[in-house]
Amino acid sequence: MGDTATQQWHAVMAADDLWEGEMEAVDVEGTSVLLVNHDGDVFAYKNRCPHQEWPLNDGDLDEKELTCANHLWVFDVTTGKGLNPANCALIGYQCRVDDDGTILVNLG
């Protein structure tokens, strides 16, 4: 067996193609993953609202606040935590940008 830790990281897109304040959905082995660039930091979440599974990339990103297009639940993209209502959270994935500027995601 090879190094499973590195095998789990998937190159998904070039960081340059994800602008600050923007988000994009990518497919990682059949899972839709939401990538968000907030102030130059990249975050990765399952692209499904924890409320009723609506695709989050349909929503609206304003600074830290991601609003789901379905029933307007609001999340903080830097922590994944629900802001309204507060008792919920996005499902987060590990995410990093490597030296050549590629965004890598680990579904864990």
Binding site: D58, G59, D60, D62, T67, A69, N70
Partner: peptide, 10 residues
């Protein structure tokens, strides 16, 4: 038209 809703909200 969820996008109309999100934009109009702002």
């Amino acid at each position: 038209r969820p996008r109309d809703l999100l934009a109009t909200r702002k």
